[in-house]
């Protein structure tokens, strides 16, 4: 028995190396694992806050209406009642945050209207569409239509 122990003693050495490696791994893992990992699921909870910190570019309807109630009134009675301001005017969060210094540019009407109203077979049949070239012959839309309430 003693001899067996002596002759298999060398096997303890690689085992020791393995165990030492494992121990180092566990210690290092314990030290560098992200805080609260797994609080809600298998991920870093801090990621949620990181993603929430992204700044918004679109201010949202409510913020626009807080000042622009006149345009809102005009719009409410027309066909564009449910089109949000920023759908045509683009992202205005910087303007909403500093309306004194940041002034939005007016949209390019010719391109803007056509994007929605240019005739396309794939558009819903009941959606108002025109072939702009035939419809106005190059005259820009807001010569006749008021964009906030586009009746003739």
């Amino acid at each position: 028995m003693n001899r067996f122990l002596r002759d298999s003693g060398h096997l303890a050495r690689p085992a020791l190396v393995l165990v030492a490696g494992l121990a180092v791994f566990l210690v290092v893992r314990g030290a560098v694992i992200p805080k609260n990992f797994g609080k809600y699921g298998h991920y870093r909870p801090a990621a949620l806050d990181l993603i929430r910190q992204h700044p918004a570019a679109f201010a949202g309807q409510d913020q626009c209406l807080a000042c622009h109630d006149e345009q809102a009134k005009t719009r409410a009675s027309g066909k564009h009642a449910h089109v949000a301001c920023e759908a045509c005017h683009g992202p205005q969060a910087p303007h909403a945050a500093d309306f004194v210094n940041v002034k939005p540019a007016l949209p390019d009407v010719a391109a803007l209207c056509a994007r929605c109203h240019e005739n396309d077979a794939a558009k819903p049949k009941n959606f108002p569409q025109v072939v702009t070239a035939e419809h106005s012959g190059g005259v820009v839309c807001n010569t006749c239509h008021q964009p906030h309430n586009p009746h003739l």
């Binding site: 918004a56 570019a57 679109f58 949202g60 309807q61 564009h80 449910h82 089109v83 949000a84 920023e86 759908a87 045509c88 992202p91 929605c116 959606f127």
Partner: peptide, 8 residues
Amino acid sequence: ACCEACPT
């Protein structure tokens, strides 16, 4: 943003 900007 996509819902905000969707006109229809």
